[in-house]
């Protein structure tokens, strides 16, 4: 929890990252930046999926539609916040020469996406899709 608070502080204080440790080879930082962007694209895709569920499944019962759309949107928000948090933590670890942070997040995201997919299958097979 303290670690999270420190990371959040780093999001807003650009100078603090440069203060820590030594500047790594810029290519490592660029690789880290691309990873951040890949997670941001995942987040944008989840948000797009939320819109798509809402707009392109009009026959779906409103409860299911709302639930699926909100689940995808919430996953998108989580993914975006996690993207910047992981970027900051990796950058700091590289500067300090520490190991890169490990994370349960990719597994969690997979489970959420799988759950949404199973829900979709149930909706279609059960004939609630109209």
């Amino acid at each position: 929890m303290i670690d999270l608070r420190q990371s959040v502080r780093l999001w807003f204080a650009p100078a603090r990252i440069s203060e820590q440790g030594e500047t790594p080879d810029y290519r490592f930082s660029l690789a880290n930046e691309r990873t951040f962007l890949a997670w941001l694209r995942t987040a944008l895709a989840l948000v797009g999926g939320g819109f798509a569920v809402d707009q392109f499944l009009p026959g779906l019962r409103s409860g299911w539609r709302l639930g699926l759309a909100l689940a995808l949107l919430a996953a998108g928000v989580l993914c975006a916040l996690r993207a910047i948090n992981h970027w900051v933590r990796c950058e700091r670890a590289m500067r300090r020469g520490e190991d890169l942070p490990v994370s349960r997040f990719p597994a969690l995201m997979s489970v959420v996406v799988a759950a949404v997919a199973v829900a979709m299958v149930v909706v279609v097979v059960g004939g609630w899709a109209g």
């Binding site: 204080a13 650009p14 941001l40 949107l73 916040l81 993207a83 900051v88």
Partner: peptide
Amino acid sequence: PRLLAPRLALAATACTVALALCAA
């Protein structure tokens, strides 16, 4: 190239979150 400014990273993240809130 210099390090991506954290402010810029935060701004890009904020855009994504704003789109999600609009969607909600």
